Simulated scan of single mutants.
Amino acid sequence: MQKITTFLWFDDQAEEAAEFYTSLFADSRVVDVQRYGEAGPGPEGTAMLVTFELAGQRFLALNGGPHFRFTEAVSLYVDCESQEEVDELWARLTEGGGEESQCGWLKDRYGLSWQIVPRVLGELMSDPDRARAGRVTQAMLGMKKIEIQGLLDAARG
């Protein structure tokens, strides 16, 4: 078992969110659902705590009520190997009420922030040729969903 686990607070969508998130990534599954009993505080039989894994990493999701909301101060960063992976995750995570932001950031329909980033971005931004890296950075700053071809074009000048 991993020592540190990300704990996510939802109003009442923890089980739905966990099922959605696990549908996006290989090696993902809902591990356990603990339900509220007679004593509550949630309605009896509804999910209280959902344990799930995304790409082998464990998360906990609580249906804790409307007291707390997600902010951009915390996000899930996804290292993508290809434009196809970026495109698919971007489309799936923004569908149903998600919001696009800048520089590969988005919020899903539950309000959780994600960074959907192609691996090549880090490689290009750390190029020893600082002018080249700067062009890539400027290109990325003008994007919502990151487009690999646009980064490569900027790198070439």
Results as ranks from 00 to 15, higher is better:
Met140Tyr: 14
Gly64Ile: 09
Lys144Phe: 00
Phe10Ala: 14
Arg119Asn: 15
Glu72Met: 07
Ala133Glu: 00
Leu49Gln: 15
Ser126Lys: 13
Leu106Gly: 05
Ser126Gly: 13
Leu106Arg: 05
Lys145Gly: 02
Arg109Lys: 15
Glu15Gln: 09
Val120Asn: 10
Gly97Pro: 01
Ala131Leu: 11
Glu72Gly: 15
Cys80Lys: 02
Ala73Lys: 03
Leu24Phe: 00
Ser113Ile: 05
Tyr36Met: 07
Arg135Trp: 07
Phe7Pro: 04
Val117Pro: 12
Ser28Pro: 08
Trp105Gln: 09
Val50Cys: 03
Ser28His: 05
Val86Asp: 06
Ala91Gln: 11
Glu99Cys: 09
Glu123Asp: 15
Arg135Gly: 13
Leu76Glu: 01
Leu76Val: 11
Val86Ile: 06
Leu24Trp: 00
Phe10Cys: 12
Gly134Phe: 02
Arg29Asp: 15
Leu24Arg: 03
Phe25His: 10
Val86Ser: 07
Asp12Tyr: 02
Trp105Arg: 07
Asp11Asn: 13
Asp127Thr: 11
Val136Cys: 09
Val78His: 03
Glu100Asn: 07
Leu54Gly: 08
Ala91Met: 04
Ala55Gln: 07
Val86Cys: 13
Gln83Trp: 04
Trp114Cys: 11
Arg92His: 02
Glu53Tyr: 00
Thr6Arg: 04
Leu8Glu: 10
Ala73Glu: 04
Lys107Val: 11
Ser126Trp: 06
Ala17Arg: 01
Phe20Asp: 15
Phe25Gln: 14
Phe52Gln: 01
Ala26Met: 09
Ala61Phe: 02
Ala26Cys: 04
Val78Gln: 05
Glu53Val: 03
Leu121Val: 15
Asn63Gln: 05
Asp79Leu: 13
Gly98Cys: 05
Ala26Gln: 14
Tyr21Ile: 08
Leu89Met: 03
Glu19Ile: 04
Val50Glu: 04
Gly142Ser: 06
Leu49Ala: 04
Leu89His: 08
Thr71Ile: 05
Thr51Trp: 11
Gln57Cys: 10
Gln57Asp: 06
Tyr77Cys: 07
Gln115Tyr: 10
Trp114Ser: 11
Pro66Cys: 06
Thr51His: 13
Ile116Tyr: 06
Arg132Lys: 15
Gly104Ile: 01
Gly64Trp: 00
Phe68Gln: 14
Pro43Val: 09
Glu81Asn: 05
Ser82Gln: 02
Leu106Thr: 07
Tyr21Gly: 10
Gln83Ser: 08
Asp11Phe: 01
Met48Val: 00
Leu106Tyr: 02
Val120Gly: 10
Phe20Tyr: 09
Leu106Pro: 02
Trp114Gln: 06
Arg35Phe: 08
Cys80Trp: 01
Tyr21Trp: 11
Asp27Glu: 12
Arg58Ile: 11
Pro128His: 12
Arg35His: 12
Phe68Tyr: 14
Ile116Pro: 06
Asp127His: 07
Cys103Leu: 12
Gly134Trp: 00
Glu84Cys: 02
Arg58Asp: 06
Phe7Lys: 04
Asp87Val: 00
Phe59Leu: 10
Ser82Val: 01
Leu89Tyr: 00
Glu44Val: 01
Arg69Gln: 15
Gln83Gly: 03
Gly122Leu: 08
Trp105Pro: 13
Phe25Trp: 07
Tyr21Cys: 12
Pro128Val: 09
Gly56Ala: 06
Phe20Ser: 12
Trp114Tyr: 10
Arg35Leu: 08
Thr137Val: 07
Asp27Ile: 09
Phe25Ser: 12
Gly134Leu: 02
Gly134Ile: 01
Ala26Tyr: 03
Ala133Tyr: 01
Phe68Met: 14
Asp11Pro: 03
Pro43Cys: 05
Leu49Pro: 01
